[in-house]
């Protein structure tokens, strides 16, 4: 809850941050010109826009490469995370055997595993290494959230299913998975962002391989002191992150909007 309870219209929600952004960009542009900051230290926004306009064909190719790895990592993480969660809820034995290793994967910094993965997949398959690393990063929130969600089923509802002689499969499909939905969607929002971070960090560490993603563009631009292009690539990355987040938030509203407290708007 906010202390300030003045109503905010949807138009203001867009307009106010936009105005702030324009002001900041204006001040930035002005200060760079006024203080004569060299372009390779801090380029003015206009130079970044120019670089974006000039380099966008090659930047878009890089964007696509990063996007592909991010999406693939996200979906693999989603599938394996949900699958392992389902298995560990079905069997206590599976749960206690999997969890320590899942935690281990989670707490070990991905940067530290990268060289090992790189050796295993071979330098000719760097894209596979990137995919594996991004998946490792994205996987844990899905697993832990889904497990928690499936376990937090109302006890009486569980009893009710038992009373009516529900099979394991019925209980999973009609009770545990729907109950886990809000948790899973929360995990997906975290995991979507982590998949992107994983894809970028992995590329920093492992290098680009055959194609080069946005991370490699940033490294390359830095080496050539082409700072405007570096900012352009950065901008693309953050826009990509925002789009992923918005899509997942939209999915959440779509699935939970009618029933879950988190997505329901209350009139006061």
């Amino acid at each position: 809850m906010n202390e300030d309870s003045r109503p905010v219209s949807p138009a203001m929600r867009v307009a106010v941050p936009l105005v702030l952004g324009i002001v900041v960009l204006g001040v930035w542009e002005f200060l760079v010109w006024w203080l004569e900051v060299p372009k390779f230290v801090l380029p003015p926004p206009s130079a970044i826009v120019k670089s974006l306009a000039n380099d966008y064909p090659s930047l878009l190719v890089s964007l696509w490469i990063t996007l592909r790895i991010t999406l693939m990592a996200f979906f693999i993480a989603l599938a394996t995370g949900v699958l392992l969660a389902v298995l560990s809820v079905q069997s206590r034995l599976v749960e206690i055997s999997i969890f320590p290793y899942a935690v281990m994967l989670q707490v070990t910094p991905v940067v530290a595993i990268a060289p090992l993965i790189l050796i295993w997949v071979g330098v000719e398959h760097i894209d596979r290494a990137l995919l594996i690393l991004a998946t490792i990063v994205a996987f844990f929130p899905i697993l832990s959230n889904t497990t928690l969600g499936m376990k937090s089923v109302d006890h009486n509802l569980r009893d009710l299913f038992q009373l009516y002689g529900a099979s394991r499969w019925q209980r999973l499909r009609m009770l545990q998975l729907p109950a886990a939905q809000p948790y899973l969607l929360g995990g997906m929002k975290i995991s979507g962002g982590l998949a992107l971070i994983g894809a970028v960090v992995a590329e920093f560490v492992a290098g680009s391989g055959t194609g080069s993603g946005l991370a490699w563009r940033i490294v390359e631009s830095a080496n050539r002191l082409n700072i405007p292009r570096m900012f352009a690539a950065l901008l693309m990355l953050s826009v990509l992150g925002i789009v992923i987040f918005l899509l997942l938030a939209g999915l959440e509203t779509l699935l939970l909007g009618r029933w879950h407290e988190s997505a329901v708007r209350r009139e006061r």
């Binding site: 009486n156 509802l157 009710l160 729907p178 109950a179 029933w259 879950h260």
Partner: peptide, 11 residues
């Protein structure tokens, strides 16, 4: 069986 709470599936 009717429980103390309505025990409905909220979804």
């Amino acid at each position: 069986f009717v429980f103390q709470e309505p025990t409905l599936m909220p979804w």
